[in-house]
């Protein structure tokens, strides 16, 4: 058996747990594991404040802070702005046309039961910005 970890995982948001009920912008309810790319796109189209941006994964590194964290660098939107986020390795991102992906999908599946693939450089994730950001 694999060695047991004594590190307590930091809490992830509850809505990523398999079976969580998500409300789309048109009021429709779906389970988190059933969400499709179109659900996010259509919800953003309805939204008056939010718009979807494409965020391409440029780099994935281990965090200096903790082995439980990773630093993911994205190139965001048409201006390809560089944004880095430090997240738990099991934190899921939604990849266009693919679905939930994380730096450590085994851990995501173990902790959340959320079906998940490996987040890789070049993946295009769904992210949000404000529509009227000036």
């Amino acid at each position: 058996p694999p060695p047991s970890s004594t590190v307590a995982p930091p809490a992830l948001p509850p809505y990523f747990i398999k079976g969580s009920i998500i409300q789309l912008a048109d009021g429709e309810l779906k389970r988190v594991e059933d969400l499709k790319t179109e659900d996010f796109i259509q919800s953003a189209e309805i939204s008056s404040e939010l718009k979807i941006d494409s965020s391409t994964v440029e780099r994935i590194e281990g965090s200096h802070t903790s082995p439980n964290f990773a630093v993911v660098q994205f190139s965001v939107g048409e201006h390809r702005a560089q944004v880095s986020v430090e997240v738990l390795v099991e934190y899921p991102f939604f990849v266009f046309g693919q679905g939930w992906s994380s730096c450590c999908p085994d851990r995501t599946t173990q902790l959340l039961e959320l079906p998940c693939t490996k987040l890789s450089v070049g993946d295009v994730c769904i992210s949000l910005t404000l529509k009227n950001l000036k």
Binding site: P13, P14, Y15, F16, S20, I21, I22, Q23, L24, A25, L29, V32, L35, D39, F40, S43, S47, L50, I52, D53, S55, F74, V76, G77, H79, A81, Q82, V83, V85, F93, F94, C125, I126, S127, L128, T129, L130, L133, K134
Partner: peptide, 25 residues
């Protein structure tokens, strides 16, 4: 009989990271 439980419902945008680049006009 099983009492129906109230299940939390989360808005779709909770699940999407807010990667807002700084923009200059």
């Amino acid at each position: 009989n099983v009492e129906p439980r109230s299940v939390p419902v989360f808005p779709w945008h909770s699940l999407v990271p807010f990667l807002a680049p700084t923009q200059s006009d």
